[in-house]
Each structure stands twice: as structure tokens, then as C-alpha cells.
């Protein structure tokens, strides 16, 4: 069964209170899971644990039914961190050639209308939105099935937000996404399921009214 599954995840930073206590989260191809929660509630930490670069104090991670310690080593899971991760001294074209092997994929990305204009620019000279768009395109061109996106819409212009949403929707049929973001409206537009990380655990949110009750001010979704 194709699924990224984590259960009983417990985590605390050194000398601190328990940040995650018994978190359960799963994601299947075809799903876009919106992971919401207040600042410092552990969303990024949970994504890093799911990716495998942070070890939980306790817990179990299964990838397609197999228990696994570091999901990223399987190349089945990709993670888009909050901050820029591509080296600023390299050009867009250099990074495309570095991160992709398949000639068709390289050609497809090089002909992307947004990236075409900035192909020979250094990463440092791109806007935040262009950088996020490039990072996401490069990750989506990998063979991974599960994508953990940490605030992909943060600091991005409305036009590029739409483009990023479009990209996610295009790949939704074959890939599964877990997206955390403060711009909950942008995430909710494309999500198939909502999880709220609160008090160290994940709460499933059935509808927007539930979200008003637990997370956003009352009346936010009144039309």
C-alpha cells in the first residue's frame, strides 16, 4: 500500500518541554494534506522528522508499508524547507543541470515561461517567489512520491502563488503532498484534507467551521 505514515511521534528539543507527543500523520498519493498550526507548534519539526533528518525521541515511520529510519535515503520523499536552500552563487541553469539527469525533464524545465527569463541569473538575484518556484519545480522533477512543503507560499507574490498552486495540482494525481503554511487560505484552496497541529498532537479538521472553532477567528469563513 502506497503511503507515508508516521505514528506516535514524540519529540522535544534539549531541555525543553515536549513539542510533539504521540503525533499521527499519513499521506497517500493523490492527497494534499494541509498541516496548520500556530507559530512554534512543531510543524517544521514534524516535516523534518517525516523527511528523516531529525530523529524523534520515539515513534514509527512507514513508507509504503515498510518501517524506515531515514525516508529521504529512499529518494521517495522530498522536502522543501522554509528557507532558500539552493546555493546563491550558482545560476538557475547550473542548478537545473545539476539536479536533473533526464534530458526531457531538463528541456521541459528550461522552457518554463517563468524560468526562461531568469535562466542565466544567479539564484541570489531571483525574487523569493521565483526561488520557491524553481526549488519546487526541481523537486517535482525528482522521482519521489511524497512531498513535504514547509511554507511554500511564504513571501511569494500572488501570481507566483497561483503558479505554485497550479504545479501542485498538476502533480496531485501521482504524488502526495503535506503542506504547512501560515497562509491557510492558499493551502486550503488546494488541500484534500486538513490537519491541525495543536498541543503536541494532530487533530483532523472536517470542515471550515471546525477550523474556526480551533484555529482561526470566528467569522473568518462567513460568506
Amino acid at each position: 500500500m502506497k503511503e507515508l505514515y508516521a505514528d506516535s511521534i514524540e519529540f522535544s528539543y534539549r531541555n525543553q518541554y515536549s513539542l510533539l507527543s504521540g503525533v499521527f500523520i499519513n499521506c497517500k498519493p493523490g492527497e494534499v494534506v494541509a498541516l496548520l498550526g500556530r507559530n512554534g507548534c512543531g510543524k517544521s519539526t514534524l516535516l523534518k522528522i517525516l523527511f528523516g533528518i531529525l530523529k524523534p525521541k520515539n515513534g514509527l515511520i512507514r513508507l509504503d508499508g515498510k518501517r524506515i529510519q531515514s525516508p529521504y535515503l529512499s529518494k521517495e520523499v522530498c522536502y522543501l524547507p522554509q528557507d532558500r536552500f539552493l546555493p546563491s552563487s550558482k545560476t538557475v541553469q547550473q542548478m537545473i543541470f545539476f539536479m536533473l539527469k533526464d534530458g526531457d525533464k531538463i528541456e521541459k524545465i528550461m522552457s518554463d515561461p517563468i524560468l526562461q527569463k531568469v535562466l542565466f541569473q544567479k539564484i541570489a538575484d531571483l525574487s523569493v517567489g521565483e526561488q520557491r518556484y524553481l526549488e519546487l519545480l526541481l523537486l517535482l522533477a525528482q522521482k519521489a512520491t511524497y512531498y513535504l512543503l514547509d511554507e511554500p507560499f511564504s513571501g511569494v507574490s500572488p501570481f507566483l502563488k497561483e503558479q505554485i498552486q497550479e504545479l501542485i495540482l498538476q502533480h496531485r494525481n501521482s504524488k502526495g503532498f503535506v503542506i504547512s503554511d501560515h497562509h491557510y487560505n492558499t493551502v486550503l484552496d488546494i488541500s484534500t484534507r486538513i490537519l491541525l497541529l495543536q498541543n503536541g498532537g494532530c487533530r483532523s479538521i472536517e470542515n471550515k467551521k471546525d477550523l474556526e472553532y480551533f484555529y482561526v477567528p470566528e467569522g473568518t469563513f462567513d460568506d
Binding site: 531515514s70 529521504y72 522530498c78 522536502y79 536552500f85 523537486l139 525528482q142
Partner: peptide
Amino acid sequence: YKKSKYIYCNLGYS
């Protein structure tokens, strides 16, 4: 360059 590790991790390298 702490963030650069994500390039390699995303390509499956420890």
C-alpha cells in the same frame, strides 16, 4: 551553509 544539506538529502544522499 546549513541549508545546503537539503539539496543532497533531496537527491537521496546522507
